[in-house]
Design a protein around this nucleic acid. Structure first.
Lengths: 168, 168
DNA sequence: GTCGATGCAAAGAATTTGCAGGACC
DNA sequence: GGTCCTGCAAATTCTTTGCATCGAC
């Protein structure tokens, strides 16, 4: 991998994130319940973006059922504390991923139009370009989302020569 | 405005777009119906991004009521033909805006966290950075969405010194 | 013991779909 | 005249809320 290669999978903090989240939740005056901790561990363990339903389903399958409402309420809490990042890639439901409130491990996303796969990636050049762009607009910019859509390696294979053209 | 200033409101093609859309729809084997043309004109006339509900409501208010289902079906058609761009900014419903299939007039969006306003902007520098980034990943990238979130000029005014900090 | 947190089920909201009748070519 | 298109209403899906109960502090 050369220095111009975008870094794949920015490897989230996992356990580190879970502890941070529990600490921040407590600090914000919230209680530590079993269902909540279960959800936190599930989110922290996954590197991919999850929907509320996926979280609820996987926890049920794991023998630790948590009500869907609780999942949504927990995600809302975490989003307010900037501990999860909500991502709307256009599917039916919103997706969530762990985030560091300070912005470390920040990254962008590739979305496959064919299979729906979501792949995170980091790119310092792009990141700088975004910051510069943010200075040129008249909004006071805080966050940003960048989504590149196309075909993932697996799906691109099957339709290699169609070359629908990369429109801007 | 200096050369480093991002261009505000990329002024969409309006009538030009409506004609293009009708032509392309016909070319794709679809019929020209009254409700459909009405929707096309509504979309083409707006420079801001609209939700399906907004389109239906405004048309009803204008005395040209069109069923919501028809609005959705028309938007789906247009999206497939790349004549509208769907935008998920995180609200309850998806937003749509006219687009040129070739990518002309392509732009990005500023979203106000406070009032929900969506402002389009163009930025050639950012655009180039995105294209370069797209070459560094292993997806075959076609489209992209860039959303900068923060406070619009009006909303920023009221909370000027809070400076919650631009996290990356 | 108090008050936040949970779960279930009902409520809401956005979008899709089935179907009978009407419009376009 | 055969299809495609439309509108309405029912169906789906995602998310939020009300409320009685349970559990953390």
């Amino acid at each position: 991998m050369t220095s111009t290669e975008a870094t794949r999978v920015p490897s989230p903090p996992a356990d580190e994130w879970v502890e941070l989240a529990e600490r921040e939740l407590r600090r914000a005056g919230h209680r530590a319940s079993v269902p909540r901790s279960t959800i936190l561990r599930m989110i922290g363990a996954q590197e991919c973006v999850l929907t509320a339903r996926e979280i609820a389903d996987e926890l049920r399958a794991a023998g630790k059922p948590v009500g869907v409402a609780t999942v949504y309420r927990t995600l809302e809490l975490l989003e307010d504390l900037r501990l999860v990042q909500r991502l709307d890639v256009g599917g039916d439901s919103a997706r969530y991923e762990p985030a560091m409130p300070g912005g470390e491990h920040h990254h962008h996303h590739l979305v496959c139009d064919a299979c729906g796969r979501v792949t995170p990636f980091q790119d310092p050049h792009l990141e700088r370009a975004i910051h510069r762009a943010a200075e040129r607009v008249d909004y006071r910019v805080g966050d940003h989302d960048v989504i590149l859509r196309g075909s993932c390696p697996d799906c691109a294979e099957g339709s290699s020569r169609k070359a629908r053209g990369a429109r801007s």
